[in-house]
Design a protein around this nucleic acid. Structure first.
Lengths: 225, 225
DNA sequence: ATATGTATATGACCATTCTCATTGTTGATG
DNA sequence: CATCAACAATGAGAATGGTCATATACATAT
């Protein structure tokens, strides 16, 4: 198992190399984007640890080049981000995972193990009736035709699908979808407004809304009956 | 020390009472907003644990009534929120703290102790030059005259003030201010745009910007020289 | 000093989000 | 069945957040 570590922090580079070598991985390093690409295109790696902030060529550009070249190597991005919960983000760009600095060695090891092990994963696609929502690419389709949803609409639909078959309250929904931004001390009817807009975008034959209202409770989504 | 617990979940009510009585607090309870208010206006409590979702009269209305009556009792709001970091929110409404359900008994105890101990706290007001920013009420003034900032502008200014005297990078700023929403994979110049708008709102004599640019690094705020 | 590339500033513009007032709907009650 | 109150849906508009193209400032080498 050969791992390429790309980071301009030489101290960190050293530290990571040592730790990973102790786990019997073959390690190579690069301290900038260009040499990273050179190496990647000449040697086959099993995994790449890629810092986002790099001299010469930043991590994102490196990643883009890798993917454009059709290489399917698992890439774990490293960022200075302190408090990431949903690594979903960025998966669009072809990164397989996303780890915030500073991270514990234990966590890094766990991720690396998981990524190397990973092949047939659970389905990242949520469905209900003719709707399917891909949590990775953040794309939604109805009978295959794509729906153009805004960020909030997507999150609301995702939340409803996660709770498919059971009603969720506006409050609960606001908590989950708005997260930190959610101010429990001021609730207008913004949830209803977004539901309305969602419904308008998800046209159904006979105008049977796929998102049903449970009076006094909230909203629910389920498969056809 | 007498504590009033207001919650309609009778099981939780029982549980809390038991736990707090064991800590030698005097406990009274109410399971709806109206009886809560009755009790509050007849007996002097040292602290109120107040659920937001209540029958008859919701927690927020209860809180409003308490404050309108000029009562200064510390109030700890309970909500179903799962992942709160900044309790700053809602302080406007006169709640002193804000705890998410489900919470651990340990955490609740810690908060209660802290609230009862608290009197002369650290200053929740950040300053630099003529600017002062109240993290509680989320109000900003320049020489006493209020500035009308948007949410993002406020957060950016708050972050700069928290790091007064040292430059912060755009990336770092984006991480902290945008939190979860922050997508390290797509950075436009939105930070610069907000900085520009902030500067426009913070007029200074001679147009000496209070937020200075550190070329190649980011931005900094400090007192006058 | 001048030129050149890079970093920053700004104006204009558009999509999204949210508030608000109004209207429609539902279910309980007499 | 009629009335009423609570709840939900909606349209319209305002504020916000963000993109982008362009202009400006700055650092460096010539």
């Amino acid at each position: 198992m050969t791992i390429l570590i790309v980071d301009d922090d030489l101290e960190l580079l050293e530290q990571l190399s040592k730790a990973l070598e102790r786990k019997r991985y073959q390690i190579e390093t690069a301290d900038n984007g260009e040499t990273a690409l050179d190496k990647i295109f000449s040697v086959p790696y099993d995994l790449i640890l890629l810092d986002i902030m790099l001299p010469r060529l930043d991590g994102l550009s490196v990643l883009r080049e890798i993917r454009q070249a059709g290489l399917n190597i698992p890439v774990l991005m490293l960022t200075a981000r302190s408090d990431v919960e949903d690594r979903v983000k960025g998966l669009d760009y072809g990164a397989d995972d996303y780890l915030a600095k500073p991270f514990s060695m234990a966590e890094l090891m766990a991720r690396i193990r998981a990524m190397l092990r990973r092949d047939g994963n659970r389905d990242p696609v949520l469905r209900a009736g003719a709707i399917s929502l891909d949590t990775r690419s953040r794309r939604v389709t109805q009978n295959g035709t794509p729906l153009d949803l805004t960020a909030k609409e997507f999150s609301i639909l995702e939340f409803l699908l996660h709770n498919k078959g059971s009603a969720v309250s506006r409050f609960n929904m606001a908590e989950h979808v708005w997260g930190n931004e959610f101010d429990p001390f001021s609730m207008s009817n913004f949830v209803d407004v977004h539901i309305k807009n969602l419904r308008k975008k998800i046209k159904t034959p006979g105008d049977v809304p796929i998102i049903r209202t449970i009076r006094g409770i909230g909203f629910i989504i389920d498969d056809g009956i």
